[in-house]
Design a protein around this nucleic acid. Structure first.
Lengths: 245, 245
DNA sequence: CGCTCCCTTGAATGAGTTCAAGGCGCGTGG
DNA sequence: CCACGCGCCTTGAACTCATTCAAGGGAGCG
């Protein structure tokens, strides 16, 4: 039974420096480790949690990827974001202890579960954990603001290019190739996230492909002209922002 | 000189229960009060802070209102949000101590300045302050997600109706009328916030006005048929959300 | 009175959507 | 091993909602 759970070992986790243990001593890390709950792997299209669930915990992605979305009364979804390894999910629950969106796995994935009560408690005791938690929260807010900018006034082409560059950037931060990766999400998810239709996303991808900037093969994407892609996006970026790694 | 500064008295502040002191004892409140810095009033179109400024503090609105926006390299602005009394500004600085957007006053306004280092410190000492800070952060994240939903897949009419209802709701939480208020922002700001053009906003307002749902007179808005306005928006809302007060 | 800024209105244009059809890859079952 | 079906994606053509372009109105202020 034990073997199907992933091991909790924050200190040796390759994601530690993107995650809560960043900046903690080995001793502090093991105190954090002690509150992490093990969890069974989550399979494609399974829910990690659902909108309106009572929230006891937040979660970090250990492997695989997730999509979060909000469901309207009319049944329409709006995808809020995608989560890659090292990223923290469920922060919206800080408001009142309820999740305000649903999260599903885009592929088989594992997570670390962090009970909120114990995490808060520990933050009071370990100042550098408190600091790092705040940094992660700040990052979430900054990232949400970028999404607002993206959705607000950008053309389909700019949205698509930005989306690819954001992924490239995040994969590269994880030590993967920044020019070649697989999209774990469906076209439908991308479209919904970008505020476009699936047809528009498809057309944008073929356009970018036809101009030689990228190569698309199913879910696989290869960026051939990173500069050209950046050139599409650059004028929209705030000065403080850069896709240069 | 002293008289042009507003007095810091969190315990008697009418906004206390929307703000950080909520849930604190009188003694705890005065400890919080002690770290609040006085600040000169900010006039129309003046900056509270600018994108890329070093961030020593976060701010709560004491009176008046603000607009936050991100400036792109091409000079294009994207309005991120509007702030009314009791709301906390600058949380994005938690990421790395820099502001990631600019904030300008929409009218003469006053703020309470909270130095981040001292606030963090105090959060470690007062658990209920830590809790309330987290609640406010959670609220910010939830609100950003609502904006993403709003910008993602909504028609101009839905956007406009949602915008008016959001304001109505927030004014009512402040003890003002939920059916009659003045817009402190220009049409341009509304348009930019909603991802529309100024002309479209203008047309939507006249449409709503022509159908008798609202009355518009310059910046003044009166909601005549709250239900009709809600009916435009309802189908898009998540189940957990309600404009009922 | 004559500016300027802010907002409204009308008509033409266009980017993205909608509708419709077809293709491709993959798993299942004959 | 092939045939079939299904989910996912692409492509084309018509349409539509919001934008763009252009002009004018009205409040506030020197």
């Amino acid at each position: 039974m034990e073997s199907i759970f992933h091991k909790v070992d924050c200190f040796h986790c390759r994601l530690a420096e993107l995650c809560l243990p960043y900046g903690l001593t080995q001793e502090e890390t093991s105190r954090l480790e002690a509150i992490v709950k093990r969890k069974l792997p989550i399979k494609l299209d399974e829910y990690l949690y659902r909108q309106e669930d009572q929230a006891q915990s937040v979660f970090t992605v250990k492997s695989g990827s997730f999509r979060s979305f909000i469901l309207g009364r009319d049944g329409a979804e709006q995808t809020i974001g995608f989560y890659l390894p090292g990223e923290l999910m469920g922060l919206e629950a800080l408001q009142n202890g309820r999740f305000r969106c649903s999260v599903v796995a885009l592929e088989t994935a594992t997570v670390c579960e962090l009970p909120l009560s114990r995490l808060n408690e520990l933050c009071g005791k370990i100042p550098s954990l408190q600091t790092q938690f705040m940094r992660i929260i700040g990052k979430e807010i900054v990232s949400d603001h970028s999404k607002i900018v993206l959705l607000g006034n950008r053309s389909a082409r700019e949205k698509m290019a930005t989306f690819l560059l954001m992924l490239s950037r995040r994969y590269s931060a994880l030590g993967f190739s920044s020019t070649e990766f697989n999209l774990s999400m469906r076209r439908h998810d991308i479209a919904n996230f970008l505020g476009l239709t699936i047809e528009t996303v498809s057309r944008q991808l073929t356009d970018l492909s036809n101009s030689g900037i990228i190569t698309v093969k199913q879910r696989g994407v290869q960026i051939n002209k990173l500069d050209a892609l950046k050139a599409i996006v650059e004028p929209c970026l705030p000065n403080h922002f850069s896709f240069t790694h």
